[in-house]
């Protein structure tokens, strides 16, 4: 979803973020970060499985957002995905926030 007025883009991801799906998600997030946005929000509330490839996608997305000066936030990180991010020591560099209320989706 994209709020073209305020420069927000919200991406909802669901299911298993694993070695098979992570490359496709990375491609998607890097495409999003090429757009004229100021804030990228990723809603993880429907992610139930996360492995190191998924964590790697999150890290690469964070790095790309930082390089482009785009603020990135997350919500809904829970269950074992949260535990995996904690064990990988990635949680301290994630900014968690409630999902933005967007006006329209594309």
């Amino acid at each position: 979803m994209m709020d073209t007025i305020h420069g927000w883009y919200t991406l909802e991801i669901s299911g298993d973020l694993d070695l098979y799906s992570a490359p496709e998600l990375l491609k998607k997030t890097l495409e999003i970060l090429q757009q004229r946005i100021t804030h990228f929000h990723i809603d993880c509330s429907r992610v139930h499985y996360l492995d190191s490839s998924g964590v790697g996608t999150i890290i690469k997305t964070l790095q790309a957002a930082k390089a482009r000066g785009i603020k990135i936030t997350f919500s809904g990180i829970q269950g074992t995905p949260r535990k995996v991010l904690s064990m990988a020591n990635i949680l301290p560099i994630l900014t968690e926030a409630t999902p933005p209320q967007v006006k329209q989706s594309t």
């Binding site: 992570a22 492995d51 190191s52 490839s53 890290i59 064990m87 990988a88």
Partner: peptide, 15 residues
């Protein structure tokens, strides 16, 4: 390679 997460051993050492 580009698809490696590069963090599996970090979590493994704790798990």
């Amino acid at each position: 390679d580009a698809e490696d997460g590069g963090n599996s051993l970090i979590a493994a050492l704790e798990y």
